[in-house]
């Protein structure tokens, strides 16, 4: 492709003198979305590991899938995490209308419901440990605890972030960076619900088949 020559004297503009606009919010949320994709691939790797280690031989004579998953009990966790995500999503609707109180109430509700989720999960862990089913018992149990714990760690991180956002709203107000963070947190929190769908179906339900 040869270089295009323009007609004499008809040079198009060479420099852009306009004011430099920088969409802070779109820039931050796109970068965060990309991070979420890499986070999703962490889970892909973990699910691949689980797919390899969930056979009977990986239980090394210890508890197998069917013996440790309780889908009905885990459904309460499902309700908790989905409600927490729903509460935060509604909080961002309040943000849309500039309703600061609604926003903060939604965040508090999300924290509480997320706390319920973590409490249920930790109780489940404690019960399993009491039965002697620990991550050190077998390869299968290592993989099982890995999936649940990785999701749980993300949840804890999100709960801390929710608390920090409460402080930021109070201290900085609804500036562009703070709003961008709230949107990022929405992506992160909704992502936890999406991952939980996979965890619930492919660990708890699949284990009970």
């Amino acid at each position: 492709m040869a270089v295009k020559i323009v007609a004499d004297g008809k040079l198009p503009p060479l420099w852009h003198y306009g004011h430099e606009e920088h969409d802070v919010i779109a820039s931050k949320t796109f970068g965060f979305w990309l991070y979420m994709l890499s986070d999703a691939l962490i889970f892909a790797g973990i699910f691949a590991a689980y797919g390899v280690l969930d056979h009977t031989m990986n239980a090394a004579g210890g508890p197998t899938e069917a013996q440790i998953v309780h889908p009905i009990a885990a459904f309460w966790q499902t309700i908790a995490v989905l409600s927490s995500v729903f509460a935060y999503s509604l909080a961002t609707v309040a943000l849309k209308h500039g309703n600061r109180l609604g926003l903060m109430l939604g965040i508090v509700a999300a924290i509480l419901l997320g706390g319920v989720f973590m409490a249920l999960e930790l109780k489940d862990f404690a019960d399993l440990y009491a039965q002697g089913a620990t991550a050190q018992t077998s390869g299968f149990l290592s993989a099982f605890f890995l999936i649940i714990a990785t999701h749980g760690l993300h949840m804890i991180f999100g709960l801390i972030w929710l608390l920090v956002m409460l402080a930021q709203i109070l201290r900085l107000g609804l500036t562009a960076p703070v709003v961008a963070q709230l949107l990022n947190l929405r992506l992160f929190w909704q992502f936890q619900a999406a991952i939980w769908v996979c965890v619930y179906v492919f660990v708890y339900l699949k284990g009970a088949i």
């Binding site: 920088h22 500036t175 562009a176 949107l183």
Partner: peptide
Amino acid sequence: MAAHSDDPLQHPEV
């Protein structure tokens, strides 16, 4: 990037 009004709450993603 397209120009938006300065109010962050008016951003399309919000």
